[in-house]
Simulated scan of single mutants.
Amino acid sequence: MGINPEDVEYLSLAKEAKIGFMESSEIINKGVKIEEVKTTFAHGYGKGFNQLFPEINIMEGGACSGCVSNLYLTLKQLKDRGTLKKLPNITLIIGKDEKRYETSEKVLFIGNCTMAASVNLFLPGCPILPSELIQLLENLVKTKLRN
């Protein structure tokens, strides 16, 4: 997939708990050879989010795959509907890396691990629910259109 397993937090935790492996030499492959089917995946987070969704500023720092995938699904759905470009000037913060949370704009903190840094809007969840994020962002659009 082109992803370093050590960069995936739950895989590291599984290895530490001795319930999984990360080294290819420790894995028994009984099917098609990996080299024959290997595909490099694009990362849909960090700078990738801002490239995929230039209509909105997204700061990601150490978010779990649950929140990252749900944020991606939400933004894709809003982009397809044409709603994303109507959002007010806002920054979305996702992940537990608090040093990334320096901004003076209107900010929406997404997920329970951003709660400590939350100073503006906050959407709880672990992981966040796409339906709740869609509702919150659509309400921001409605509020913007009324003002």
Rank of each mutant, 00 (worst) to 15 (best):
S118E: 09
L136S: 00
G111W: 08
Y101S: 05
L140G: 02
K99C: 07
L123Q: 09
N89H: 15
P88D: 07
N89T: 12
I110T: 07
K86E: 15
N120P: 02
S131I: 12
G111C: 05
T91G: 01
V119L: 04
N139V: 01
G125D: 06
F109Q: 02
A116P: 01
T114L: 05
E105W: 04
E138S: 07
P127T: 03
D97F: 13
Y101E: 00
L137V: 08
L123D: 03
N112R: 01
C126S: 08
G125K: 03
E102D: 12
Q135L: 13
C113L: 08
E132T: 02
P88C: 09
V119F: 11
N112Y: 04
S131W: 06
K99T: 13
E98I: 12
L87W: 14
S118D: 08
N112C: 03
K99R: 10
I93L: 14
F109K: 00
N120Q: 12
P130A: 06
L92C: 10
K142L: 13
I128G: 01
L137W: 11
L108S: 02
S104A: 09
S104H: 12
L140T: 06
L137Q: 06
C113A: 03
L136Q: 10
I134M: 11
T143N: 05
N139W: 08
I134F: 06
L121W: 14
T91K: 07
E138N: 10
L137S: 04
K106E: 03
K99I: 13
Y101G: 00
E138L: 11
F109T: 02
N120T: 05
P88W: 14
D97C: 08
T91L: 03
L121G: 05
I128Y: 10
E132C: 01
T91H: 06
F122L: 07
L87H: 12
L92A: 08
L92D: 05
N139Y: 10
K96V: 13
L123W: 09
L121F: 15
P127E: 06
I128Q: 01
S104L: 10
I128T: 07
G95D: 11
E132K: 05
M115F: 14
K86Q: 15
L108Y: 07
E138R: 03
I128M: 07
L136N: 00
P124G: 02
P130W: 11
P124V: 06
V119Y: 11
E138A: 01
P88T: 11
C126Y: 09
T103Q: 02
E132G: 01
Y101P: 00
P130Q: 03
F122T: 01
F122K: 00
G95F: 14
G95C: 10
E105D: 15
I134G: 01
G111V: 06
N89A: 14
I134V: 15
I128D: 04
E132Q: 08
L108V: 15
R100Y: 14
G95N: 09
L92V: 11
P88H: 12
L92N: 05
